[in-house]
Design a binder for these strands. Structure first.
Lengths: 225, 225
DNA sequence: CCAAAAGTGTTGATATTACACCCATGA
DNA sequence: TCATGGGTGTAATATCAACACTTTTGG
């Protein structure tokens, strides 16, 4: 039988899939690993958690280091715990997904970091492709069920920005006319009075109206499947 | 700085919130703890994971031991990782929630186990109340967004059974007429031809039609918030 | 016949969908 | 003036919610 101390042999890590929206496209933050055993492989940003460090604290520290800010939406997903997922010993990975407006990043990206298009994720180290798959699933569900778009749009955005994000996330074509009307009707979005000029007719700029969401606690009692 | 080996000091545990439906009510399985430091306290069934044991394997072993079966729906939720959540050292807890038809339990319950009404959970050891809260949230969301009811109904059930579950889970009164029609329309449910007699008019017995769900992969592209 | 629980029908209100159409800009 | 993207209007259809009504049992 195992002695008591033999249960205390595992390590912990945090990894995050951070998503942003930049010049009309969705991106995931990836990091080239430096340390053995996966030098030069690509993976999700992450770190080993110190023995007395809280998971959130470790994550905040990491993000501050990498991006100069740790003030963004994030949510813990599953733990990845397979005995042999890491070659150096058992390391349980606590995975997160996060959303950040591109403009909020406070530091120039280190050369080890890169934003990869969400629809074209390369092969990653360890089980990180599996983690990314889970992250993308949750990302999509979040878009459908919560006003998560606003977590990674800039302060001011157009309805077309929103539509672009949904179209990419779901690889589908949306009827802009109807979708836009739904958003407006929801009151989640308030016109700022400003406009963005590009080509064609200038687009109204909106901002997120958080209070309109807070006052809707009621989960409707009908099947949604 | 930490030496490498100092990262490998943590333990892992699995805990599960198993929900069932028995004589018209929802219950959660709880276990009286035997081992130090929480003797006689109540908590979620769980165990420490062995150094070379996969998390799922540990959970399966536990459930087989407790209930005589490990064949039921379950899903991993967050990890609970606070440094001091366990008094004997850092133990990260991988939490699950599960659903089982009461009839599928193969063993008489040990005296350490009990089914507690879902709406009246007592004070639990460690951070288990917090875990239960998360489990109940996911349980409710699962009921709204997926055909999870069928995971813990018996093979044959009535529409009223379904309605009872939803009413309890959401502490609300449902219009049985409309709700029943929605269920029927969904084709998720097929009449067996049998009836259950009780008081009043006998109720048609149905069974779950899994295939009707599988062929609906399409997440509708509209806001649901 | 009555009470109780199951199940059906109807209807007005609301939401969704598919488009046609108009608007404001730069080149 | 045209191309381009932004934005409004409308009408057919589908869905929802409320609730009256009917059916089938046991006592």
């Amino acid at each position: 039988m195992f002695e008591f101390k033999h249960f205390f042999r595992g390590a912990y890590s945090v990894n995050i899939g951070l998503i942003t929206f930049k010049s009309g496209k969705l991106f995931l933050l990836l990091q080239q690993k430096e340390e053995y055993p996966s030098q030069n492989e690509i993976g999700l940003p992450g770190k080993i958690i110190l023995p007395n460090e809280e998971t959130e604290a470790a994550l905040k520290k990491l993000m501050l280091e990498l991006l100069g800010t740790n003030d963004f939406y994030r949510k813990q997903l599953n733990a990845f715990t397979a005995v042999n997922r890491h070659p150096l010993g058992r390391v349980a990975c606590f995975s997160y997904y996060g959303l950040i407006p591109f403009q909020n990043i406070q530091k120039p990206l280190s050369s080890k970091l890169s934003w990869e298009p969400l629809n074209n994720i390369p092969n990653l180290c360890y089980d990180h492709n599996q983690i990314v798959e889970m992250i993308l699933n949750r990302f999509r569900k979040g878009l459908l069920r919560h006003p998560r778009v606003f977590e990674f749009l800039p302060d001011q955005f157009t309805i077309t920005d929103i539509i672009t994000i949904y179209e990419q996330a779901f690889s589908t074509k949306i009827d802009a006319s109807n979708f836009g009307k739904q958003i407006l009707k929801s009151d989640l979005v308030m016109p700022t009075g400003a406009y963005r000029k590009d080509s064609g007719r200038p687009a109204k700029l909106y901002e997120f109206n958080k209070s309109a969401y807070i006052k809707k606690p009621k989960d409707k009692m009908h099947f949604n499947f």
